[in-house]
């Protein structure tokens, strides 16, 4: 059976809906020995900041039931290094490049966005889970007012479609999603990790040196599905769903609740070719279920 897996997000065509999630796929290079990057719909590169960042002290990762908590703290070589040393290489591949950016002030986000103009990437993804230093360090993504402000500010600086990546650590995800849409977001992606903690009772210490980190993996999938469902039912812009996707079935679940594409994160830490495995699973599902066009299942679950 011939199947169609292409999807369109804010005018950008993805050959299939499987995207590598930011922070779990490096800048792609680390995975070429294990899979063909041309096969997947897109790559959201590891979070980039204006200046290089060292990140948090180790240990930075711990496994918890059906999940992991990480406290990498955005270690990255900075925007300039990425543009000069990683991007040219990545552009050789036939896959969409989503640049994931982070900052501590609105100005920083705008500067990074501006720097990418003319560099021939496909989309900009705003990680708004970072602390806003001018607002006492509360995360941008937790207040609808700040979300709208940062979205509209960055939107003015970028030539690319803007994806706002929502933090799940909020009271009302729908209010945040609507604020991003009102600010001019072209698409949304969710969910980022859920703040979490683990304790080492033998040594009477937190498991992570940073004490708190972000939970990801299968443990968060039901929460992620619920949030993607709620958001898809309350905004008009496309949504990229993620959180605990380990195989094709998980990806299909996200699409059925309304996600137009999906991102695979933690699974990349277990199998460096996880994205390809997920894609194969999606295709297998389509063939078995007689789904000719992937778009036919997007949001198929109605109430």
């Amino acid at each position: 059976m011939d199947i169609n897996t292409t999807v369109d997000i804010a005018g950008v065509t993805f050959k299939n809906p499987v995207i590598a999630a930011s922070g779990t796929f490096g800048y792609g290079r680390e995975h070429v020995d294990y899979m063909d990057l041309n096969k997947i719909g897109g790559i959201s590169v590891s979070g980039l900041t204006l200046e290089p960042r060292n990140g948090n002290p180790p240990p930075r990762i711990v496994e918890t039931p059906s999940g992991i908590i990480n406290s990498v703290g955005l270690q990255n070589p900075g925007v300039e290094y990425f543009i000069n040393h990683q991007l040219p290489w990545l552009k050789e591949y036939d896959t969409r490049i989503i640049v994931n950016i982070a900052g501590n002030t609105v100005e920083e986000y705008c500067q990074i966005a501006d720097r990418f103009n003319g560099t021939d990437v496909d989309m900009l993804e705003l990680n708004i889970s970072c602390p806003n230093v001018k607002q006492g360090g509360i995360a941008f993504g937790t207040q609808p007012v700040m979300v709208e402000e940062i979205t509209s500010a960055v939107k003015r600086y970028t030539q690319y479609p803007l994806v706002v990546k929502l933090s799940p650590n909020v009271g009302d995800i729908v209010a945040i999603a609507r604020a991003a849409q009102a600010g001019g977001a072209d698409a949304l992606s969710l969910i980022n990790t859920i703040t979490a903690m683990a304790v080492d009772i033998e040594n009477k210490r937190p498991m992570l040196e940073n004490v708190i980190g972000g939970l990801s993996g299968p443990a968060i999938k039901p929460i992620a599905l619920r949030m993607v469902w709620q958001v898809c039912n309350s905004v008009d812009i496309p949504v990229i769903g993620m959180g605990g996707i380990m195989n094709g079935r998980d990806a299909v679940e996200f699409m059925m609740v309304g996600a137009r594409a999906v991102a695979v994160g933690t699974a990349n830490l277990i199998h460096p070719d996880a994205c390809v495995r997920v894609l194969k699973g999606v295709e297998q599902y389509m063939t078995t279920a007689g789904v000719k066009d992937i778009r036919d299942i997007i949001g198929i679950i109605k109430t």
Binding site: F25, G26, G55, I61, V62, N76
Partner: peptide, 13 residues
């Protein structure tokens, strides 16, 4: 402590 083992997750600092 490690995640991916191949250099992409930045956890093994």
């Amino acid at each position: 402590r490690m995640g991916c083992g191949v250099g992409s997750c930045m956890t093994c600092a």
